[in-house]
Design a protein around this nucleic acid. Structure first.
Lengths: 153, 153
DNA sequence: TAATAAATGTTATGTTATAACATATCTTTA
DNA sequence: TAAAGATATGTTATAACATAACATTTATTA
């Protein structure tokens, strides 16, 4: 069983527990995101799903499905690129972590990491000292990955 | 002399030093951003400039001008909202700081802060440990401001 | 199996953004 | 100061991203 399948299984169970359905189309979108190292736009997802699975899901539906996946913490939107990624940490309980995405602005590859010193607690504290309340801590960092740096040289 | 005028004066000098021009239209865009507590979209800027200054600058030009302002560190794009804000720190030398924006997702008010513990050095270190190179550290945090929290209650 | 709820599809349109090319305005220097 | 060149702005068209309103299909359950 591939890692992608493991993730999908897990997501299906998680949804069932919550009493919501990870339908076949939702699975297609999530699978496509999981198979990709890069973040993808809704329209790219439409194309890849047609290409890989021979199914045509209209963009509107993909947006709705992405909304569902975000709501249930199965995917995230990267605002830096207007693209979407699968959450690759549903196995661990990362609910209380600050999500941090390193985005290669050359090849669009994305890595989800946890910074050591920066905790949600610290972040919240500093933000609240400024009279704001943190809603959802998600950091997106504009980067270039090693591979692309080497290719430039 | 208002704070906005002081900022504009400073920006004009800064540009002159670099050998670039902060033209009248560029000043209009920057002034509009400085006058606003909220981040604004390019199209909102078109509208506000017509309303406040009676000048019609086409959206394309506003986008180009925003590009110029970003290039010269006079404004920033907030990807969380697809909107733009003036940099309010051109007086201090914040070049080597991590820019951090708290964005109220109810009223769109923006506050630019410096978090205490999080330094660019730390951030860079942690990112580079993951095989990525940080390009421009700008953090955008999804928040609700105090005013809006109170209004909800 | 009919009633209901949930998911997906259709159509239209809004918002954000850029490319390609034309014109106008500044700056330099002959 | 007029011509040449550079910089800035405008025009037109279109691409990419996203949602609203409503129709249809599929699943659930009474």
């Amino acid at each position: 069983m591939t890692q992608v399948q493991v993730n999908i299984e897990h997501a299906v169970r998680k949804c069932r527990q919550k009493g919501v359905r990870l339908t076949q189309k939702r699975q297609l979108v999530l699978t496509s995101l999981l198979m990709s190292e890069k973040a993808m736009s809704a329209y790219e997802l439409v194309a890849i799903i047609e290409q890989e699975f021979g199914q045509i899901i209209p963009a509107v539906s993909v947006y709705r499905i992405l909304g569902f996946l975000e709501e249930h913490q199965l995917a995230h939107k990267l605002n830096l690129a207007n693209k979407y990624v699968a959450c690759r940490h549903f196995n661990c309980d990362h609910l209380h972590d600050v999500k941090q995405f390193l985005i290669c602005n050359v090849c669009q590859r994305v890595k989800e990491i946890s910074l050591g010193k920066l905790t949600e607690h610290e972040l919240k504290h500093d933000v609240e000292a400024s009279g704001f309340k943190l809603v959802s801590p998600q950091l997106e960092l504009n980067c270039v990955c090693d591979d692309c740096i080497h290719e430039m040289a």
